[in-house]
């Protein structure tokens, strides 16, 4: 069984078909790329998978369970985490706090516990901090843990967003244009990071325009154009697919 199955997903905004009966599977442990020209419906797909939008029709099965009706935070708790195309960090908070917030759905402390700070609460907080520091070390931001997130340079903000998403303990990680705005060196570091995340046993779905990154690390690629799926296959197949070439470069006639 696939980790996630999207079946005939459709999303309309008024008269606009942003996503038009798109179906695809994500297999356990793979890196799947979602590509397409601007406005093809990639980010809308992400918003559907994470419950920000409810699909107009079609269904999403995650580990066999239909996600319809679940709110975004519930989807996160079920094991789907994401990053955003336009970075959305908690800017005025520290790097460490950002990652601690990622652990919200895996911890329990309530109002009463927070104020009384009994033994179990202290223990939970200590564990959360330890885990947050491990994740920061993993993405190479441990030395910056007490800096405000908004003061980090762009590439580090992207890595912090990934650390925060990993803190929710996801099985499936959705990365929305992780290499956008990065220089070649930063992109290479990012490729290494994504490979390491896969080795941790996570499944990854990524939207990306950087073809070097997409072709370099994806096991499989799904191509969208005008809300429709036009191709699905290995990087090699996609590179040679005439419909994909047409969508990106236009018709030679």
């Amino acid at each position: 069984m696939a980790l996630l199955e999207a079946k005939k997903l459709t999303m309309t905004f008024g008269g606009l078909m942003a996503v038009d009966s798109v179906s695809f599977n994500i297999e356990q442990g793979e890196i799947l790329g979602l590509i397409g020209p601007n406005g093809a419906g990639k980010t809308t797909c992400f918003n559907l998978l994470t419950g920000i939008y409810q699909p107009t029709s079609g269904e999403i099965l995650f580990k066999g369970e239909n996600l319809r009706g679940y709110k975004t935070y519930e989807v996160t708790k079920k094991g789907i985490a994401r990053t955003f195309q336009n970075i959305r960090l908690f800017g005025a908070m520290t790097v460490l706090e950002n990652v601690l917030i990622g652990q919200h759905c895996r911890t329990k402390t309530g109002l009463f516990g927070a104020i009384t700070r009994l033994g179990s609460v202290k223990k939970e907080e200590e564990n959360a901090r330890e885990k947050a520091e491990e994740l920061l070390k993993f993405v190479g931001l441990l030395e910056k843990k007490n800096e405000k997130a908004k003061n980090l340079p762009y590439g580090e903000q992207r890595r912090l967003e990934i650390a925060r998403a990993l803190a929710t303990d996801p099985e499936l990680l959705l990365l929305d244009e992780p290499a956008a705005g990065m220089n070649p060196q930063e992109t290479n570091d990012l490729i290494d990071l994504i490979k390491q995340i896969r080795q941790m046993g996570k499944t990854i779905l990524l939207i990306e325009h950087d073809m070097k990154l997409v072709m370099g690390i994806c096991d499989r690629i799904v191509v969208l154009d005008y809300g429709k799926k036009i191709a699905d296959g290995t990087p090699k197949e996609i590179r040679e697919n005439s419909r994909v070439i047409k969508a990106y470069l236009g018709d030679p006639d």
Partner: peptide, 9 residues
């Protein structure tokens, strides 16, 4: 939006 996507109701 980020708060909710990070798992906060």
């Amino acid at each position: 939006i980020a708060a909710e996507a990070t798992g906060i109701p």
